[in-house]
Design a binder for these strands. Structure first.
Lengths: 214, 214
DNA sequence: TTTCTTTTTTGACTCAAGTCAATGTTTTAG
DNA sequence: CTAAAACATTGACTTGAGTCAAAAAAGAAA
């Protein structure tokens, strides 16, 4: 078994060199997220953390544009990012919003290494951690529990997406909106109508009419 | 490396007791499928195979009905099974067809252990192998490579479903049909109009009209 | 504050695809 | 082989949600 003594240089470095960046507690959020999914030793945790880098993004900034292959997975510490794609007529559909304490990846491209049809964009000024595709897959090889972490991540992503698929197949606009209010009200409370419409895959006008009906 | 000679008793048993059941080559198909995804030792393979059981199903027979929790994963050796669900008006939407050499699972329920909203049904007289949920998760613990096998399975399932989700969001009926002809013509060639319509989530009448246009 | 931009709302009109219904056609079971 | 059931096609009509357009409201910038 490999012996790995983590140096915490990186984190102190951050605190010293980037004092204006309030990343205090950032690692803690990521650490507790990881620990909630798998049990790992301190050295494994250190190996994992050493692969993540902090990053700040302004509202509307793109973290991934289409055509690029998805090379990073993001963990949102503050703010919100969305994963979306654009159809032939130029309208966008949002597949997923990641708020604080959630991961966001253009998973299809991340998995297949093909150019992404999806974009990732900050919906608010945000603070995220990212890990590169290369490091992510490297971790799969050197940290056995990371395979399990990724498996659990995939399970959650699969369930989320499949439920979403089913919702689109059997619900009309009003039903989708009601379910969103019921299951994910933060999206309605915190984001613009435009974002909500994009998430429900209906026009803004239709959403506006739905709201006046309730 | 340990030498492990798996007993073929189970399989010979089948051949002797169920001579009318032509399961020849069944194991081979499953074995080569597994080997195409992961590299494993003979003893690990034997452990895995010992968890699978063969089974025959007649056309239209249900392998899983809704409300049950999904307790089995199926591997199709011959025939075809579909995974579908039913909306409030009683219409069904097919999420996936598994033909020969493919796995079929009501994955959401399999993952969450909640009652399934999905049904699994034989579309043709079929021969399948199945593994129970319990054995499947047991394998995750005792065969390290099985974790990888499952991860790869999840990756493929995720990509398939997400592409399908995107297709429903941006394509109209004609585009969906054309893409199906292009990417999955076996579904059109081999299955009834009704099944195809259910897969595209359009009415049979609409499908019929589309066909006369091409 | 005031201006400028972006978002939201509302109305009038359109259209893709659904429903209902009638008629053929194929499959299945006895 | 025949009857019954299931499936496929076609026509007439309906409808949920989109588009276009214009006005009102809300945010952002200066």
């Amino acid at each position: 078994m490999m012996i790995f003594k983590p140096s915490n240089t990186k984190f102190y470095h951050l605190l010293v060199d980037l004092p204006e960046t309030d990343f205090n507690g950032m690692e803690e959020l990521l650490i507790s997220y990881i620990k909630s999914k798998i049990s790992i030793t301190d050295e494994e945790l250190a190996t994992i953390l050493s692969c993540f880098r902090p990053m700040k993004v302004k509202k509307n900034e793109l973290l991934l544009t289409d055509g690029q292959s998805s090379q990073r997975t993001f963990f949102v510490v503050k703010g919100c990012v969305r994963i979306f794609f654009i159809n032939d007529e130029g309208q966008d559909s949002t597949r997923y919003f990641a708020f604080e304490n959630q991961f966001a990846t253009a998973l299809v491209s991340f998995i297949t290494s093909e150019p992404s049809e999806e974009f990732i964009q900050a919906v608010e000024d945000s603070e995220v951690y990212y890990i590169t595709h290369k490091n992510f897959y490297h971790l799969l090889e050197i940290v056995p529990q990371w395979e399990k972490f990724y498996r659990i991540y995939l399970e959650i992503a699969y369930v989320t997406n499949t439920k979403r698929l089913m919702s689109f197949l059997i619900q009309d606009a009003l039903e989708k909106y009601r379910q969103l209010l019921d299951e994910n009200p933060i999206i309605v409370r915190r984001l613009s109508n435009k974002m909500v419409a994009s998430y429900l895959n209906i026009s803004q006008e239709t959403l506006s009419r739905l709201k006046s009906k309730l």
